[in-house]
Amino acid sequence: MITPTLEVYILLSALLFAIGFFGVLLRRNTLVIFMGLELMLVAATLALVAFSRYNGTSDGNVFVFFILTVAAAEVAVGLAIIVALFRKRQTIQVDELNALKK
C-alpha cells in the first residue's frame, strides 16, 4: 500500500499526463488523440487539487473549475471541427489529413 502523500499524487498526475501524451503521439485516429488531450487536462486538474489540498488554500480548486469549463468548450468546438473535416475528407486518420503541407 502506498500512502497518499503529496509526492505520490504528483507522480500519479505526471504518469497520467505521460500516458495521455503518448496517446497523442502514437495514435492515428483523431478522436483517440483528442481523448489523450483530455487525459492530459485531467492530470493537470489532479495536480492542482492535490496542491490546493496540501497547502490549505482553495485557489487550486477554483482554477480546476475553470479548466473544466474550458475543456468542455474545447471539446465541443474540436469535435465540430472533426465532423466538418470528416464530411470533407471522409477520413479521420491524422496522417491522411495533410493538405496544408506544401
Binding site: 503521439l25 491524422v94 489529413l97 495533410n98 493538405a99 496544408l100
Partner: peptide, 14 residues
C-alpha cells in the same frame, strides 16, 4: 515551420 502534419506539431509541443 508550418508543415501540414499534426504529428510534427506534437513534436514541437514536446
Amino acid at each position: 515551420l508550418h508543415v501540414g502534419k499534426l504529428n510534427v506539431y506534437v513534436y514541437w509541443f514536446l
